[in-house]
């Protein structure tokens, strides 16, 4: 045969389409299988936030207590709980802070950083006012920017009132947050929930060792909770309702950063509680 004939398109040749098709289908099946198995055998990225924040206390100036003496209580025995009414302060947003370059929780078009302040310790408005709700019809970007900063300021200040101060929330201005952005937001979530994580004393000590409940939470772009449901019950109904209540009381959360927004809205995040 003339060599030109063998290259002619008019001559029919054995087709390899079947082979390629087969390989393609097999490849897809493998990919799907691997995905399914991966999802089956991993719990998703785990974030260990059990690390204790560093707490420092300033020791009062004065003579040290004689080691031979019996201890004294720092405070008298706690009186029965009294409700202190904190009047909701007028919603005047604080002025924006001058900005270091590091980004804490980025907003659309805005670089935000929770105020890194141990200084402010004013009585603060109740938490409901700190809800950052972006509103429609805001023409001015500057307005919005101010509002967001005001919200952050209030939030970080009001958190200072609480007993349990978590270091992660404001972090260090020189921290390497740029690489661990996701974890940082999860840390924020965790500390916000933990502040409301109240569990009844009645839960037997033996049970406290193994109680575990999972709450699946979906969060929208403003930090509002779309859905919070018990994904895995602990077996103790009181504990289950306590952790659900903790999530509800802790919401709304801070707005999630850009790259987590979709994940948090669609598949959400699972909070695994143990006492």
């Amino acid at each position: 045969m003339h060599p030109a004939v063998s290259q002619s398109l008019l001559v029919s040749r054995r087709s390899r389409l079947g082979l390629y098709l087969g390989a393609s289908v097999a490849g897809h099946v493998v990919v799907l299988l691997v995905v399914a198995l991966y999802a089956r055998f991993t719990d998703g990225p785990r974030v260990d936030l059990s690390q204790k924040p560093i707490r420092a206390t300033l020791v009062r100036l004065g003579k040290p207590r004689d080691a031979k003496l019996l201890p004294r209580k720092e405070q008298p025995p706690p009186p029965p709980p009294k409700k202190v009414e904190t009047p909701p302060a007028p919603p005047t947003p604080a002025p924006p802070k001058p900005e270091p370059t590091k980004v804490a929780v980025p907003m659309p078009g805005v670089k935000a950083e929770p105020k890194p302040t141990p200084a402010a310790k004013k009585p603060e408005p109740s938490k409901t006012t700190s809800k950052p709700t972006p509103q429609k019809g805001e023409a001015n970007g500057e307005d919005r920017r101010k509002r967001l900063f005001g919200a952050f300021d209030k939030f970080s200040k009001s958190s200072k009132q609480d007993e349990e101060l978590e270091g992660a929330e404001d972090g260090d201005p020189h921290g390497d947050s740029a690489t661990a952005e996701g974890e940082r937001y999860f840390g924020l979530l965790s500390s916000q929930v933990r502040r409301h994580y109240d569990v009844a004393d009645t839960i037997p000590e033996a049970e406290r060792l193994y109680l575990k409940a999972q709450v699946a939470v979906r969060i929208d772009r403003t930090g509002e909770v779309l859905e919070a449901r018990l994904a895995k019950a602990s077996g103790n109904a009181l504990f289950d309702s306590a952790v659900l209540a903790a999530v509800k009381r802790a919401s709304p959360f801070s707005p999630p950063p850009d790259h987590l927004r979709d994940v948090l809205r669609k598949s959400g995040v699972v909070l695994e509680f143990s006492p």
Binding site: G44, R46, V47, L49, F186, A242, S267, L271, E272, S274
Partner: peptide
């Protein structure tokens, strides 16, 4: 798979 955050240290 949603990420899992572990929370402990309840206030009793």
């Amino acid at each position: 798979q949603a990420p899992v955050i572990q929370i402990s240290g309840a206030n009793f």
